[in-house]
Design a protein around this nucleic acid. Structure first.
Lengths: 156, 156
DNA sequence: AGTGAAAATAAGAACCC
DNA sequence: GGGTTCTTATTTTCACT
């Protein structure tokens, strides 16, 4: 698992992925060279999977978000995989989740306005044969947790 | 809005937030100094809101995810804000969304195992007075879109 | 595994078009 | 607004503990 130093590195980099190695080392109390080796190991072990700039959807001209619950039938592997690929291929999609439940997918989208959302739903969702149900909920507020911590910290 | 160069910078940094300014400049075909000014402006304008390392939930010992739909009553500002703050304060939470619909919130959580999820629900959700309904769906697959593009690109 | 010092590289500022 | 050059700072390798 992750020791205290690894956990600290992961925590700091979730807060600011552009921290210089020097500053990061200072924050987690190890030498810069050690810090570099640790961080590289975390990437190679697949703990850190990437570094992403976070953008403001409003600034991108897409201030309106919605959560779309979709039921597809038949609920088979081929249909599920094809639908997921289809959804992730659309620029409006922020995330898509395949879940166990009456609705098979929850899709988070960001669009320019209500008209855009309407077109998205009518032209690209309800036109699909496998889509048997659609529940669209507008998003008032959406928050992501800044830093995710390892199990040990969660189960305290 | 964003011109083509800004859009390219935003795209590249969503892919890899640790790109050096030099490499970034090469990819978007401008001089390093120009690129530096552009990127700084994008931050100051609030287009780029941060740089985050992405971590693997399995590697953090939290391989099990669920989507929890929650109804709270009364559906007033105080109750909504307090519940949102409460949910975001929990280490299990990945994201929380306040939506318009029969369910007021959609909460995405990652936990160690089913027992952990059961405890979370019974000890920290159903115990809350304002929570009047709870629908928990296990997550089979969860995908985020790597790069979000500006409206112009979306409405093509 | 962790550290310190030295060489390679990039960031950032000032200046010019 | 964009490009070039130069100084300063940082990254990264390597020999050592």
């Amino acid at each position: 698992m992750l020791d205290a130093i690894d956990a600290a590195i992961v925590r700091e980099l979730q807060n600011d992925a552009r921290l210089s190695n020097k500053d990061l080392a200072a924050r987690v109390n190890v030498a810069p060279s050690t810090c570099l080796v640790r961080q590289r190991a975390l990437r190679e072990r697949g703990v850190i999977t990437g570094y992403r700039a976070e953008v403001d959807l409003g600034a991108l001209g897409r201030p309106l978000q919605a959560m779309i619950a979709v039921q597809v039938r038949p609920h088979t592997r081929v249909v599920v995989e094809a639908f997921l690929a289809y959804v992730l291929d659309q620029p409006e999609t922020i995330m898509a989740t395949h879940v166990a439940g009456p609705d098979d997918f929850i899709v988070h989208v960001a669009v320019a306005d209500a008209t855009h959302l309407q077109r998205l739903l009518l032209d690209r969702y309800t036109t699909r044969k496998e889509v048997t149900q659609l529940h669209t909920n507008l998003v008032f507020e959406h928050h992501r947790r800044r830093t995710l911590v390892p199990t040990a910290d969660v189960l305290s």
